[in-house]
């Protein structure tokens, strides 16, 4: 997986990712994507391109437990979020809906907006193509990795007729 980086700071909360007023109105991913990260950059949904990545600081996705947050990010075209750390509900939600949430210590310092980053989930590495610097990423537990491979919880269940932890 390779993509262009959108750089975000620490403590990006789910109210900023998708405000409740939009979440209350719709569960349609496309509609949610139009308002993704509006609080930080009202133009984000127009500028983001398919395959782009988000690199963030600590505690990404803190706050309200809304699946709509990773759904909006995924539907906007982002293919993975790499962060120093994630808030726990966001981390679970992201993987459940099939958006890779990758913990990579030090990534924030090593990346600038617009850099190209290559992720190798199998190897557990994140490489900045611009600087050549490679960092170790945390591996997901095996059952979550399988869920991500399948494209999320629903897809996994449809394929195997059981949940990945069963």
């Amino acid at each position: 997986m390779k993509g262009r980086v959108w750089k975000l700071s620490d403590n990006i909360d789910t109210d900023v990712i998708i405000p409740y007023k939009y979440k209350a109105r719709s569960i349609d991913p496309k509609e949610l994507a139009e308002h993704c990260l509006e609080g930080i950059d009202p133009e984000f949904s127009r500028k983001v391109q398919k395959g782009d990545l988000i690199v963030a600081g600590r505690n990404f996705g803190c706050g309200s437990s809304r699946d709509q947050a990773p759904i909006a990010i995924k539907a906007s075209g982002i293919s993975a979020v790499i962060a120093e750390s994630f808030a726990r509900i966001f981390y679970r939600n992201a993987i459940n809906i099939g958006l890779p949430a990758i913990v990579c210590k030090g990534i924030s310092k090593e990346t600038n907006e617009g850099d190209i980053i290559e992720i190798d989930l199998g190897e557990g590495t994140v490489k900045n193509i611009m600087t050549g610097k490679s960092l170790k990423a945390d591996k997901h537990p095996e059952f979550l990795e399988k869920m991500l491979e399948a494209g999320g919880l629903v897809e996994y269940y449809k394929k195997f007729g059981k949940f990945p932890w069963e």
């Binding site: 699946d67 509900i89 679970r92 939600n93 459940n96 809906i97 629903v154 269940y157 949940f163």
Partner: peptide, 12 residues
């Protein structure tokens, strides 16, 4: 707390 997808899995 969890999200919607996960609570659906718990309901199931």
């Amino acid at each position: 707390g969890v999200g919607s997808t996960e609570i659906a899995a718990v309901w199931a």
